[in-house]
Amino acid sequence: MVKTKKGNQSFPFAVSLFGSVALKTIKDYDPADKRTFAESLTYVGQVLIARKVSQSFSYQITPTYIHRNTVKIEADPHDIFALGFGSRIKLSKRVSFNSEYYYAFDESKSINARNSLAFGVDIETGGHVFQLILSNAITMIEKSFITETTDNFFGGDIHLGFNISRTF
Score class of each variant (00 low, 15 high):
Phe11Asn: 09
Pro12Trp: 02
Phe13Met: 03
Phe13His: 02
Ala14Asn: 01
Val15Cys: 05
Val15Met: 07
Phe18Gln: 14
Ser20Val: 08
Ser20Met: 12
Ala22Phe: 12
Ala22Val: 13
Asp28Gln: 06
Tyr29Val: 00
Tyr29Gly: 00
Asp30Ser: 05
Asp30Ala: 09
Pro31Cys: 11
Asp33Val: 08
Asp33Asn: 12
Lys34Glu: 15
Thr36Val: 03
Ala38Glu: 13
Ser40Cys: 04
Tyr43Asp: 02
Gly45Thr: 08
Gly45Phe: 09
Val47Gly: 06
Ile49Ser: 01
Ala50Ile: 07
Ala50Gln: 12
Lys52Pro: 00
Ser54Phe: 05
Gln55Phe: 08
Gln55Ala: 13
Phe57Pro: 11
Ser58Pro: 02
Gln60Lys: 15
Pro63Gly: 01
Tyr65Thr: 00
Ile66Gly: 01
His67Asp: 06
His67Ala: 12
His67Ser: 07
Arg68Ile: 08
Arg68Asp: 12
Asn69Lys: 10
Asn69His: 11
Thr70Tyr: 00
Thr70Asn: 02
Ile80Phe: 03
Phe81Ala: 02
Ala82Met: 08
Phe85Val: 03
Phe85Ser: 01
Ser87Glu: 13
Ile89Pro: 11
Ser92Val: 07
Ser92His: 02
Ser92Cys: 05
Arg94Leu: 08
Val95Asn: 06
Ser96Val: 10
Ser96Ile: 11
Ser96Phe: 06
Phe97His: 00
Asn98Met: 10
Ser99Gly: 10
Glu107Ala: 07
Ser108Thr: 05
Lys109Arg: 10
Lys109Thr: 13
Arg114Tyr: 00
Ser116Phe: 14
Ala118Trp: 03
Gly120Ser: 14
Val121Asp: 05
Asp122Val: 13
Asp122Ala: 12
Glu124Ile: 08
Glu124His: 07
Gly126Gln: 09
Gly127Met: 13
Gly127Trp: 11
Val129Phe: 07
Val129Gly: 07
Phe130Tyr: 13
Phe130Asp: 02
Ile133Gln: 06
Leu134Ala: 09
Asn136Leu: 10
Asn136Met: 08
Ala137Tyr: 04
Ile138Asp: 03
Thr139His: 14
Glu142Lys: 07
Lys143Glu: 13
Lys143Asp: 14
Ile146Tyr: 14
Ile146Asp: 12
Ile146Gly: 15
Thr147Gln: 09
